[in-house]
Amino acid sequence: MSEITKEQIRQPENLVYTKTKLLTDKALSYCPGCGHGTAHRIVMEVIEELNAQSETIGIAPVGCSVLAYEFMNIDMQQAAHGRAPALATAVKRLMPEKLVFTYQGDGDLAAIGTAETIHACNRGENITIIFINNGIYGMTGGQMAPTTLPNMKASTCPYGRDVVTMGNPLKMTELVAQLPGVRYVTRQSVHTPGNVRKTKKAIRKAFDMQKENKGLTFVEIVSNCNSGWKMTPIQSNKWMEENMFPFYPLGDIKVDGQLVK
């Protein structure tokens, strides 16, 4: 039997997966095992599916994904910490035909940018917000986030988050779902292939709704921060399932303007 070479295997017809052209060739700056990279990929895959590269403006936050514009092969703006929804508001108002999204961490969206988030949502801006909730400030080295779980340890709550003095975790997603201008709210994850598929469908739905001028669409992705949580990637995914999901249950929260349940 003749030897099959690697080159023979790597033929287009044999490929089950290729990187979307909407991701650049730059190596991701994320820690191995981090959910940010997967989230980037599926957002870009959806934009490719929609053939919307020339129609899309993305807004990068301040956080680990501050350099999202290095990886996403589209026109992008880098916002000050928490202000991405304000930028997106203006971009969409001035160019209503474009597809506009923000990509924000939990510190960015639910702490310093709370006002910008709530008010963009309340105005029902016709934009999509992709919200990566990893319960911690990844970029600055693992400080407490507004989403940090009760008793969870972080560098600024080394003995665990004491809800009496530090407040309870903020469920921004449930909060914005109450606002009439927000039409689609869902909470997903990207830690298993099945969840990746569901999240991708959710992002597609959000962008489709935006294209139909339906109002604000909001996709939370509960994610891991293995570095900040001081765990291996596998441990962090397990910990996420056992601790984050009970507090931040996955699933749709608002569909077509109607609260689910």
Binding site: R83, A86, A90, M95, A115, E116, H119
Partner: peptide, 18 residues
């Protein structure tokens, strides 16, 4: 009408970027 001057100037940033 923005929710604050902070938001307003960041809207300006977004618009100027276009």
């Amino acid at each position: 009408q923005a929710e604050s001057e902070v938001a307003a100037i960041n809207m300006v940033y977004g618009g100027a970027s276009c």
